[in-house]
Design a protein around this nucleic acid. Structure first.
Length: 896
RNA sequence: GGGCGCUUAGCUCAGUUGGUUAGAGCGUCUCGCUUACACCGAGAAGGUCGGGGGUUCGAGUCCCUCAGCGCCCACCA
């Protein structure tokens, strides 16, 4: 019986069903599992840790691309027989999640402060439980073949223990310290943020010039420029360049802080640029990173003039209580009135803003926890330099080096509530710190029970940095950790190379003494179809869920995977997705065709038919494809591999072989049997190759194919097939065999001939339904033409009965249009349509083309090329020359 | 200021050990409902591969240089 399949591929009814089938079948789990009986430690594992999405996040194109890529890597290795594990999970995303819950509270008319820490955390956990399944179900929809039984969350019990362990170890090694330092303070979020979380943006602003009056009442002054006048309130010096003649006389004298009257020294420091501004620099060590350095060099006071809300504090005298921007205006106005202002100039500033909150970040001195990063960075640097870790594409290695070579200590404390609390307790009696793996009951130093835990939590990236091993059970030496760690690839976006990848490498080396993965694959950003960054304000955001609704998951995945290169941004256009939806449909219909034909095979013949030229050709092409795909996969060129498969399937298999197979099937018997077998085998392998790209449609067709074969005389073809494609064996490449080149060359010649006939027909407007008679003169290829005459006739719409094939012609047929393809001459009797003059002109043009090619090749072959180029390259050119010569000769004969 | 990337057909992009007539999808034009598919088929038009120089028998591909665009890092008040 034949299977009745719908005319168009219906992804809607397929995807969910297939995914459920995979998951229920346990195919996402490693086939060799250290937690199960029968485990074989010698089977090689392949492991990816998912970049954990924010637990309450919403699917965006960034997720879509990483899931597509990682699922491709995972499916490929699974089919290759590795014990393949993709560990899923989510990140608690400290600031992002806390902000969302705070917003919810505001809507409820309350606030984080009002309900208190304990209640707030309760509410946040509730929120987490409510939304956590949301993002993971969206990830599933993309086809992600993760082992969901191993799903982890950065704040679950095990991972929290890992965080605690990591902190304590660093603390005990003296690699963690606490102290007042100049950090980036986000007044909106009321927390410190790391350097990486600050974004600089060019914005129009003002450069303010004013007078720093000498304190001696002489009326003399130093002109100074600043972009942030309010920080005058925190000035503790004025600096000039030591060799600046204008100001040397002031060095060592005192000047008076405007409106406050505080006296501060004039110092000399080479940091000051003589040619910028006035050449004199006000020094605010409490609110500027460079001034902080200078302050340290000169032993200046570190004065803070802002509080946590970025309001002026008691050090601001009359300005205390004002917001920083109000203070700026008021102070400047007052200075103007006092005659201290020189002028204002428009000036483009680089404004530091909080990546999350968006408000202007203030450098402030604050007590924070830091990781002494230098020793960790050194190891991280080495791991890539010595090749333990390879970064793809390679040029990101330089970026990585540059960052690690200039890295600053990492501020890991955040003044948030949602996160891993810092495991340090302060003693009210002896004042010392207790850092412990388990919550202590008493001070480790004096035994006092009057201890209190540090209120801060850790930077989210601290826990993410442990992800590849914490998710496998570390610090416990679990079977998973022993077998699956280190992981294999780390696939993620280049935008988090520093945030995440570098920190995972450093943490992995520090805590497990191994690189956490051997390969880092970085993908680019997904942009809109014109290469613009997607943003809500621009309104060009593409929602992957909508795209999947409209075109199917496979179409989205294929689009993201094909036509992109490692590390390069990808433009996502719906046109492309649509085209790939069409490709899925092409697969579907080719599959239908094959399945229908399998159904027409009545019995297994005693003697199978020999392969036709087309059979040989498609098989040779397929083998070449397998080789190419393997090579491209090894080089991480997934996009090119996908393109090659697409071209093969559509261009070779569907457009040519399927059309030829129609004819072969009608011959019935052994011919039909062999043809159906070839159709099935090529389809099978194509689906296997394509499965990592478009898992749903391939699985669905493959299932139908397998069933159809099993119910047919071709059942033995499926003898070693598993029940589902997802675990079918990956096609292994083999060396090309001798016959492949010859068969391919013959077939290509026929393709050229058929195309030439079609072309001429189109030019002359011959209706497709009109079957033309033709005379073919084949020379050395006469045998080939005779053998393939039925195929040629079918594909070129010739009349098989009117087809004459000869080795050579004494006279050119009358009233015919002539085509010459190397040794083959084709005459089409288009009497009424042929204008002899136009025909001569057309042939003349073709002759000229051939002759110019001959001239080009003869020149080439008589140059140094013939001596210096490799023999096969030269041979190829000689062959071309021979064909052109033959063509030219034939055309000449016809023109005379 | 330092570093990196990009510039190929009207649009969006492939093109990785340099091989000699540069590819795809979309768009455009002409035909066609040929028993898998109109989410299709056949055919066509369209590019001096940003400019200049160099290496080489040979350069879209390697080197230098210029221009434009983009990104990252640093942050001269």
């Amino acid at each position: 019986m034949t299977h009745e399949l719908p005319k168009a591929y219906d992804f809607k009814s397929t995807e969910q069903r297939i995914y459920a089938m995979w998951e229920a079948g346990g195919y996402f789990k490693p086939h060799n599992d250290p937690t199960k009986p029968g485990f074989d430690p010698n089977v090689e594992p392949f492991v990816i840790s998912i970049p954990p999405p924010n637990v309450t996040g919403e699917l965006h194109t960034g997720h879509a691309i990483f899931v597509s890529l990682e699922d491709l890597m995972i499916r490929y290795h699974r089919m290759k027989g590795y014990a393949t594990l993709w560990v899923p999970g989510t990140d608690h995303a400290g600031i992002a999640t806390q902000l969302m819950v705070e917003r919810m509270l505001v809507r409820e008319g309350t606030s984080r402060e009002q309900i208190g820490r304990e209640k707030f955390l309760e509410r946040t956990w509730e929120w987490k439980h409510k939304y956590a399944g949301h993002i993971t179900s969206q990830i599933r929809r993309l086809g992600a073949s993760c082992d969901w039984d191993r799903e982890r969350f950065t704040m679950d019990e095990g991972l929290s223990r890992a965080v605690r362990e990591a902190f304590v170890r660093l603390y005990e090694k003296g690699l963690i310290y606490r102290g007042p330092r100049l950090i980036n303070w986000s007044p909106g979020l009321k927390t410190a943020v790391s350097d990486l979380e600050v974004i600089y943006a060019e914005e129009p602003g003002t450069l303010y010039f004013f007078k720093y009056m000498l304190a001696d009442g002489s009326g003399d002054f130093i002109p100074v420029a600043t972009t942030r006048p309010e920080t005058i309130l925190g000035d503790t010096a004025v600096a000039v360049h030591p060799e600046d003649e204008r100001y040397q006389k002031f060095v060592g004298r005192m000047v008076s802080v405007p409106m406050l009257g505080r006296e501060i020294p004039v110092i000399a420091d080479e940091y000051v640029a003589r040619d910028f501004g006035t050449g004199a620099l006000k020094i605010t060590p409490g609110h500027d990173p460079n001034d902080y350095e200078i302050g340290h060099r000169h032993g200046l006071a570190m004065l803070s003039m802002l509080d946590k809300n970025a309001r002026v504090n008691e050090n601001g005298g009359p300005y205390a209580g004002l917001d920083r921007f109000e203070a700026r205006k008021k102070l400047w106005d007052d200075m103007k009135a006092a005659g201290l202002v020189i002028r204002e100039e428009p000036y483009t500033l680089n404004v530091p803003r909080s990546e999350r909150g968006g408000e202007i970040v203030e450098p402030m001195i604050s007590e924070q926890w830091f990781v002494r990063i230098a020793p960790l960075a050194e190891k991280g640097l080495m791991a890539v330099k010595n090749g333990d870790i390879k970064i793809v594409p390679e040029h990101f290695e330089k970026v990585y080096y540059n960052w690690l070579e200039n890295i600053q200590d990492w501020c890991i404390s955040r003044q948030l509530w949602w996160g891993h609390r810092i495991p340090v307790w302060y003693c009210a009696d002896c004042g010392k710190q207790t850092c412990a793996r388990e919550d202590p009951a008493a001070c480790a130093h004096c035994g006092s029970t009057r201890i209190e835990q540090d209120p801060d939590v850790l930077d989210t990236w601290f826990s993410s940095g442990l992800w590849p091993f914490s998710t496998l059970g570390w610090p416990e030496q679990t079977p998973d950790l022993k077998y699956f760690y280190p992981t294999s690839y780390m696939e993620t976006g280049y935008d988090i190379l520093f945030f995440w990848v570098a920190r995972m490498i450093m943490s992995g080396l520090e805590f497990t003494e191994q690189a956490p993965f051997h390969t880092v694959y970085l993908h680019g950003l997904v942009r809109d179809e014109h290469g613009q960054k997607m943003s809500k304000t621009k309104g060009n955001v593409v929602d992957p869920l909508t795209v999947m609704d409209d075109f199917g998951t496979d179409a989205l995945r294929f689009t993201l995977l094909v036509g992109s290169t490692p590390g390069k941004d990808t433009n996502l256009s719906l046109k492309k997705v649509e085209a790939n939806r069409n490709f899925a449909n092409k697969l579907w219909n080719a599959g239908r065709f094959v399945i229908t034909n399998i159904g027409q095979v009545e019995e297994k013949p005693a003697q199978p038919a020999d392969w036709t030229l087309a059979d040989s050709w498609i098989w040779a092409r397929l083998q070449q494809l397998i080789r190419d795909v393997e090579r491209l996969f090894q080089n991480f060129q997934y996009g090119q591999a996908g393109q090659n498969i697409y071209d093969f399937f559509w261009g070779d298999f569907a457009d040519w072989y399927l059309e030829i197979a129609k004819g072969q099937m009608t011959e019935g018997g052994a011919r039909a049997y062999t043809t159906a077998k070839t159709l099935a085998r090529v389809l099978d392998i194509s689906l296997r190759l394509l499965h990592p790209f478009t898992p749903f449609v391939t699985e669905e067709i493959w299932g139908h194919l397998r069933r159809a074969l099993r119910e047919s005389p071709l059942a033995d073809l499926t003898a070693d097939w598993p029940e589902v494609l997802i675990i079918a064996r990956w096609p292994e490449p083999r060396e090309p065999e001798g016959w492949e080149a010859d068969k391919t060359a013959d077939f290509t010649l026929l393709q050229d001939a058929i195309r030439a006939i079609r072309n001429l027909r189109a030019e002359k407007n011959v209706p497709p339904a009109k079957k033309l008679a033709a005379t073919l003169s084949g020379g050395a290829k006469t045998g080939l033409l005779r053998e393939q005459s039925a195929m040629i006739a079918a594909l070129a719409a010739l009349d098989p009965a009117g087809l004459t094939i000869v080795e050579s012609l004494a006279d050119k047929p009358e009233n015919s249009a002539a085509l010459v393809i190397g040794p083959v001459e084709i005459f089409l009797p288009l009497a009424e349509m042929v204008d002899p003059e136009a025909e001569r002109a057309r042939l003349g043009k073709e002759l000229a083309d051939a002759e110019s090619q001959i001239a080009r090749l003869e020149k080439l072959l008589s140059s140094d090329f013939a001596n210096k180029a490799p023999a096969p390259v030269v041979a190829k050119e000689r062959e071309k020359l021979a064909i052109y010569k033959e063509t030219a000769e034939k055309i000449n004969a016809q023109l005379n």
